[in-house]
Design a protein around this nucleic acid. Sequence first.
DNA 1: CGAAAATTTGACATGACTCAACTGGAGTGG
DNA 2: CCACTCCAGTTGAGTCATGTCAAATTTTCG
Lengths: 192, 192
Amino acid sequence: MHAALYHYINQYTGVTLTNPEQELVKNAFTPKKLRRKQYFLQEGDVCRYLAFILKGATRQYSVDEKGAEHILQLAVENWWIGDRESYMMLTPTIYNIDAWEDTELLLIAKADLHQLYQEVPAILLMARQMDDRHSMAIQRRVNAAISFSAEKRYADFAATHPEFLQRFPQHLIASYLGITKETLSRIRKQAI
Amino acid sequence: MHAALYHYINQYTGVTLTNPEQELVKNAFTPKKLRRKQYFLQEGDVCRYLAFILKGATRQYSVDEKGAEHILQLAVENWWIGDRESYMMLTPTIYNIDAWEDTELLLIAKADLHQLYQEVPAILLMARQMDDRHSMAIQRRVNAAISFSAEKRYADFAATHPEFLQRFPQHLIASYLGITKETLSRIRKQAI
DNA sequence: CGAAAATTTGACATGACTCAACTGGAGTGG
DNA sequence: CCACTCCAGTTGAGTCATGTCAAATTTTCG
């Protein structure tokens, strides 16, 4: 069950967990399954858990006053989900996270995570790596959002996340890019 | 000289550095002054230092193929600047950072920072807080970029960073918001 | 098969951009 | 103190990219 997580930790830190460490990690994380369309987090909730995706796909989005959804994150296996702001500050989130496919997660509460930081140094390392990678990726996204045309944003996305093109329908990708599904459809037609 | 940094550390971690710790921090950071318009970092450079702003104001921007500048960050006293991706991966940066006002910085190289993490636990704590805050702020910015109109992005910016309105000219703020200076001018006219 | 979801297409509206001209300071040097 | 330049900001006209709405078509899947 937790093997994918051990593997992930090894991959991003170079550290192989000892057996007692694996045990500690195993006890800190709770497995949870989500059916397609089921919420992991809803607007107004406090995000009490971060989750590691073992299997499946999720999306994180906000809903504007007109009811339109705007996708902030698409995530698949080996990605982490949750709203950090809500998780850390214990404030109600403005986002929704739900399962796009049937999904298996490993959940960890804040207190348990901080406990783990003490007990398993590799977790702290992993957290730093995650933050670093996340921060690099999101900076690129901001740059793309303010300086690229819709067409270029799509090209950039397709180059960086080719696997997502298979996994998520176009209207979600359009929303992720900040454009309408119609515009994306026309861009793709052109590009061929 | 370094007092502002000690104060910053205390503010964000609650930790007051001991005298020996202050000494370690002082030795790790190198003061540097920039004249207005002077570069801290240029496209193609490797970003060897992160810097804490003691005094002044800077901007970080990319330049597109048409020569247009797109502002990723505006920063003033007590902000950190640098390109994390380049700093961590030692790859050439795609951004420029220059001084908008005459600026005083404290620089720290990667190796020295990691050394400090070992010697002064409060620095590690501070780094985590910084990452957390940065990650929350930038997530909001992505959300704004993909789901708000130009007008709403400006309102949001003005509400979150009122001090920047005084400090930076409108065309920089427009660029930060991903709109042209003309559009911002018209938005402001309307809003009155 | 049939229903729901996803995608495409067309006509039209509009927000934002471009380009160019103009206005109004804030220096600067004679 | 004036003339000059530089820079920021404003304004207008025309254009373009993208959005909106509605309908048609294709794909997915129970």
